[in-house]
Structure formats: structure tokens, C-alpha cells
Amino acid sequence: MAIIEIEGLAKSYRIYQKQEGLLASVRGLFRRKYRDVEAVRGIDLTVESGEFVAFLGPNGAGKTTTLKLLSGVISPSAGTARVMGFTPWKRENAYRRRFALVMGQKNQLWWDLPAQESFRLHQQIYCIEPAQFDRRLDELVDLLTVRNLLAQPVRELSLGERMKMELIAALLHSPEVLFLDEPTIGLDVVAQHNIQSFLRFYQQQRKMTVLLTSHYMKDVAALCRRVVIIAGGMIMYDGSLSGIIDRFSGHKVITLVFPGEKPPGDLSRFGEIVEEQGPKVKLKVDRNGIGGALSTILAKHTVEDVSVEDPPLEEVIAEMFSLATEQVKGREPRPQLA
């Protein structure tokens, strides 16, 4: 059953272009330059109940804007979206009771107070019955191992500890849909892993529908089967993580180790030499030519070791991002005078 349905969703902003210098600032009082930025350009997406979907994309791709549209924080310029049957930007309380948004770079807890005071406030706002509240808080506090931090002011918590508290605040009302905007940003490896483990476990237990944006491929690999790649406000890919390489990478990497101190000199005709260290060489070879290249090399030369790998996922995605950004740049409208 589809829980999120998006059709032709678009959001554009008009942004004032501040010119450099005092004179330009004075001129700007009378005549201003604006630029239209299309943050999201008519995306279509359907998410089934219980899915854990990753939104990947470079900075400014439109990931956060999409999450803000789906949580009703902002209204779209065009298109429709239904989450659990609600139109998010109508901001109905019946909808707001059933989802949560966590933003890694923003804080919703009272800064100077212990997190438990904010949790009590949530209890009142979300009308959570006392027994249910205590039970949920106990569960979450145990899972995230933060019991000893409940009475500590939020401003004195580490970033990782604060993010755990943010997650508790977001989950106390037991949302059916959870939007996570870079929840592990700035966290060290251990804290990232803890948050990932918690999210994976909790989502599986609760069958929540989760939309996650992250720059960390490890988050995505650990949590999501489905990946949506968004760049320049458009969806470039929607499928499995492994499918990205199949679809967007036209090559593989062959690593060869030759006897002696140097590799043979005729390898560049099989593909691009991307790395050479003593007798070890890495060749970037067209996917379709792998078999031919390997059999020729092995027939012609003595090889001590050989391996064939897909290029690193990050590399493929980075290439894809830059390609998409180039495409989008070509479509950007020029600044207008107003």
C-alpha cells in the first residue's frame, strides 16, 4: 500500500542577488537583482508502507526541500503530494500527529534544559497517555543507552548524544512516517554506527516508513534497500544501491600484479591506467571489453595476481552528481532585474 504519493512536485524560490561592495548595496536599495532557483523540479515518487528509502544527492539537490514539502513546513509551487492520505502543507493536526521530522543540523529540544523536560512537553502536545509515554520513553532510552543523560542540560551533551535525544523526541508519539534529514551529520564513526543500528532495529520492529537523506554512503548501505538519487531537483535514479553501478558505471577496475619490478609497457591499450605502484597496476576497462582484455593480458604476460572489481560506489555517484549538476547548470535561467 502506497503511503507517500508524489506527482509533479515542484518548488522554486526567488532569491535576491546581493552584489559585492558598498556602492552596489546602495544601488540594491533601488534596483534589485533576483534569481529564480528551482529547488525541486516536478518529481514523481511513490513509497510503500514500511519502506526505508534513502534520498541521495549533492548539496542543493533538493533533498531537504522535498522532506520539508512532505512534512508541510513549506508549500510547493506546483504538483501534489499525499502522505497517509493527507496533503502535508494543509498542516492538519491529524497528520502532524502521525509523522516526525528529524534534522541533523537543527535542534528542537530546549537548549538550556535537560531533554526529559522537552519530552514531557511533547507528551502534552501529542496527548500521549502517561503509561504509554513512560513505556515508550523507557524503550527508547534503553535502546539508545542514554538513561544517565536524561537529567543533563541539552547544551552540555555531545553532538551524538544530542542526536539520540532528538530521535527520542521524534519517536515518542510513535510516528508512522519518519523523515530523517542527515541524522548522522558531523558524528564520529562510533556515533554514526550507533544511530544506524538503532534506526535499522527500530524501523524493522515498528514497520515505520522512513525517508532518509544522508551524504554518508555507509548510512545508506546499512539501512536502505531502495535509493532515490536526486540532483538539480530531479530524480535521476530510483532503485537498489547495487543497481546504481550497473546502470551508471560503464567500466570495471582490473588490478594486476606482475613479477619483477615494473609492469609491461603495453597495458594502456586495454584501458586507462589509474594507478601504478611498482609491479602493481590498476586498469579502468570498459565493461564490455573485460573478457577480451583479460584473456589477451594473461596470454601475453605472466601475472602473479589478478582481481576485477566494480569502481567504488562513492566514485560512481560523484560522477553522476557532477554530470547531473552540469546538465542543470545549462538550464538555469539568468538573473532578472526587478
Binding site: 493536526n93 500527529r97 501529542y126 504509554q132 524503550e139 535502546l143 508519539h173 510513535s174 520492529q205 514497520k207
Partner: peptide, 24 residues
């Protein structure tokens, strides 16, 4: 992870209007 999670989604409190006095 422990097995402390016992409830599933959908065990919401009924959709009451919050008490504005209590929130205040």
C-alpha cells in the same frame, strides 16, 4: 539490540485535542 520494543505503530493515543492549559 535488546527486545524491549513491544508495541508497533498504530498504538497511538486517540486523536485528542491537546489541553492548551496543560501545554501552557
Amino acid at each position: 539490540m535488546s527486545d524491549v520494543v513491544t508495541s508497533t505503530i498504530g498504538d497511538h493515543a486517540p486523536a485528542f485535542r491537546p489541553s492548551y492549559t496543560k501545554v501552557f
